[in-house]
């Protein structure tokens, strides 16, 4: 009886608490972005949040036409290359995605299916191989890139970023392959299917969500990476957006730097945020299939 009363009181209040937490989480997630989106449409935006009197699309137009802003006598950078930066970032993002998926999926599958001595060691080694902080590796990486001719080369940037994402992606994809029952492919195999045909017809479709996660995460790391292009890219027409933004926002006190054109910088940032969302939208079905109503963890 007491249990029943407790239940009738507790369930709705749990839900209420759930909604409160949900609201707080929403506020925490979204408030910082308000400034970005408002300033992108503000003709005279500044570093802090202010509600504009009028709304304009000029900032976005400037990103693509490469005209100078009107505010101030001079701005830290003029947006001459901005549209190229977007193309470069897209290239790096998709190249990283392709390289990572093409290399880590087979490796993850092999590690999932093969049994050999020292497999645990190899798995741990793969995970730990890149655990030296990036900044410490800067000089060796630069020299290596120079030897291999990858300096000032977008493909080189993608390869180096991919080499950093591959270890964790191998682990993630291996987890997905582990979940695919071996019996499926063994049956197909016994039925006389060619081995590779089995892979493409049976295993790959089953690993779809895993591949989507890997593709999405590697696209993100390629698209958003700052350190690797900072080391390897020299020409402004080859900058990705991350480097470009760093050359627009000049904040260091005591150093030279003219006013920042916040409007076009925020517009570029908004544009910068869109492709990951599109890629997310494409993969969302695979990323998390919201069909498991049956799991209740509470």
């Amino acid at each position: 009886m007491a249990k029943k009363i407790l239940k009738t009181i507790a369930e709705p209040s749990f839900t209420a608490i759930g909604y409160v937490i949900l609201f707080l989480l929403f506020a925490y997630t979204l408030t910082p972005l308000v400034w970005l989106f408002i300033t992108a449409f503000n003709p005279r935006g500044g570093p802090y949040l202010e509600i504009p009197k009028e709304i304009t699309l000029d900032n976005f137009i400037r990103v693509f036409t490469g005209e100078r802003g009107t505010g101030g006598t001079g701005t830290a950078a003029h947006p001459i290359y901005m549209s190229r930066w977007i193309a470069n970032s897209l290239f790096i993002g998709f190249a990283t995605m392709l390289i990572t998926v093409l290399l880590s999926a087979p490796a993850g599958y092999a590690l999932s299916r093969l049994e050999f001595k020292g497999k645990d060691f190899l798995m741990t080694a793969i995970l730990l191989i890149g655990f030296m902080p990036m900044t410490s590796k800067m000089l060796p990486l630069y020299r290596l890139g120079k030897i291999l001719g990858l300096i000032d080369n977008l493909l080189g940037v993608a390869i180096v970023i991919a080499s950093g994402t591959i270890p964790t992606q191998i682990w993630i994809i291996k987890g997905f392959f582990d979940h695919i029952p071996r019996e499926i492919e063994e049956q197909a195999w016994i039925c006389g299917c060619d081995y590779l045909a089995t892979l493409f017809r049976v295993v790959l479709p089953a690993a779809g969500p895993g591949l989507a996660v890997v593709a999405f995460l590697s696209f993100l790391s390629g698209w958003g990476n700052f350190t690797v292009p900072l080391i390897m890219i020299y020409s402004e027409p080859l900058y990705p957006i991350s480097l470009g933004l760093a050359s627009i926002f000049v904040h260091n006190p005591g150093e030279i730097g003219l006013a920042i054109d916040y409007g076009s910088a925020c517009a570029l940032s908004v544009i910068y945020a869109i492709p990951p969302m599109v890629v997310y939208y494409i993969f969302r079905e695979h990323l998390m299939k919201i069909r498991l109503g049956k799991i209740e963890i509470r």
Binding site: T29, I241, L245, Y272
Partner: peptide, 9 residues
């Protein structure tokens, strides 16, 4: 959203 928005921003 915060995760997919690049760190430079």
């Amino acid at each position: 959203l915060p995760y997919i928005i690049p760190g430079a921003i």
